[in-house]
Computed example of a mutant assay.
Amino acid sequence: MLREYDAYPDQALEASAQIETSVEEGFLSDYVPLDHSTVLMLGILELLHAEHAQGRVAVSLAVICKRLGVRMSTLQRLMTALSEQALVEVSMQKERLVASLTQGGEEVSLALQAA
């Protein structure tokens, strides 16, 4: 296969340019499904937003695990990713881990609901 590209370098460049154009136009993004971790992270943001709307600023990680049906280790990995993006803040309250949305996380949650 590599030899085919070597034999026809102009065609390989054209094919590459066509793929890049498709990605830029959003063609591929319309058909690429979200992976499971991304769906869970969006679920976390939605859950925290709903809790915040009801007056609960912080939600324990145990409650989030139960509602989303995930293991604590999985949730902690996802929380780390969300924290690194400054969307969620995890802290300790009364000897338990709790999560709350940051201002950026709140903005993302609102944007997702509007979409």
Rank of each mutant, 00 (worst) to 15 (best):
M1H: 00
L2C: 04
E4H: 08
E4C: 05
D6C: 06
D6Q: 14
Y8P: 01
P9I: 10
A12E: 02
E14W: 06
E14R: 12
A15V: 05
A15P: 01
S16Q: 10
Q18K: 10
Q18E: 09
I19W: 01
I19F: 08
I19L: 15
I19T: 09
E20R: 12
E20D: 09
S22M: 13
F27G: 02
S29H: 06
D30Y: 07
V32W: 05
P33F: 00
D35T: 07
D35L: 06
H36I: 02
S37E: 13
S37C: 03
S37Q: 15
V39D: 03
L40N: 10
L40Q: 02
M41N: 09
L42P: 01
I44F: 05
I44S: 01
L45C: 09
E46R: 14
E46C: 07
H49N: 11
H49G: 07
A50I: 03
A50V: 12
E51D: 09
E51A: 15
Q54E: 15
G55R: 08
G55K: 06
V57K: 13
V57H: 07
A58S: 11
V59F: 02
V59T: 15
S60V: 04
A62S: 14
C65P: 01
K66D: 15
R67S: 09
L68I: 11
L68D: 09
G69D: 06
V70L: 13
V70W: 02
V70S: 10
M72T: 12
T74V: 14
T74S: 14
T74A: 15
T74K: 13
T74C: 04
T74R: 12
L75E: 00
Q76T: 15
R77F: 07
T80F: 07
T80W: 04
A81L: 10
A81V: 03
A81P: 00
E84D: 08
E84N: 11
Q85C: 06
V88E: 05
E89Y: 04
E89R: 07
V90P: 00
V90W: 01
M92S: 13
K94S: 12
E95I: 06
L97S: 12
L97R: 15
V98C: 09
A99D: 01
L101G: 07
V108P: 03
V108W: 00
S109R: 06
A111L: 14
A114G: 05
